[in-house]
């Protein structure tokens, strides 16, 4: 059974309707602008907003699950000499932020929660500097060389 509603044509008065529209537009002159003056007034981000990938190399076990689940080869495993008992193969994820779509699959699949995302989003940089080595992923955004 499909409930059908035949859409009625709204009633209108010729010419007066247009004037009413003009008045509606004019009324908004006294409203408050919705623009956020971003760099001066930082916008309030919701709790769940995520952008920048972080890595804790102490927890990483080098299972390559994040590399597998990454949809567009953003994450690649690179060798890194580091004292870590659990990471026998000594490989850690590196991230190319130029292609990251922030799908958060890597965060969800990580068995040890070594890879995680934070709300930092001011990661603008020049074209060839989007590549983050595992050490870069551990640092704060301000400390990473641009």
């Amino acid at each position: 059974m499909i409930e059908i509603k035949e859409v009625e044509e709204p009633r209108r008065v010729p010419i007066l309707g247009s004037v009413e529209g003009m008045f509606t537009v004019f009324k908004h002159l006294f409203g408050k602008p919705v623009t956020v003056q971003y760099p001066e007034k930082p916008s309030v981000l919701p709790d769940r907003f995520r952008f920048r990938i972080y890595l804790s190399t102490d927890d990483c076990v080098g299972c390559t699950l994040c590399e597998q689940v990454c949809p567009n080869l953003t994450i690649t495993m690179v060798p890194l000499e580091k004292e870590n008992q659990r990471n026998k193969r000594k490989i850690y994820p590196s991230v190319n932020f130029g292609t990251c779509t922030v799908c958060r699959n890597c965060e969800e699949i990580c068995p040890t929660d070594a890879i995680y995302l934070k709300e930092v989003f001011e990661t603008a940089r020049t074209r060839n500097n989007f590549f983050y080595s595992p050490e870069d992923l551990e640092k704060h955004e301000a400390e990473v060389k641009r």
Partner: peptide, 10 residues
């Protein structure tokens, strides 16, 4: 300016 304010911009 008028266009912006009417359209809720600055």
């Amino acid at each position: 300016k008028y266009m912006a304010r009417v359209q809720m911009r600055i």
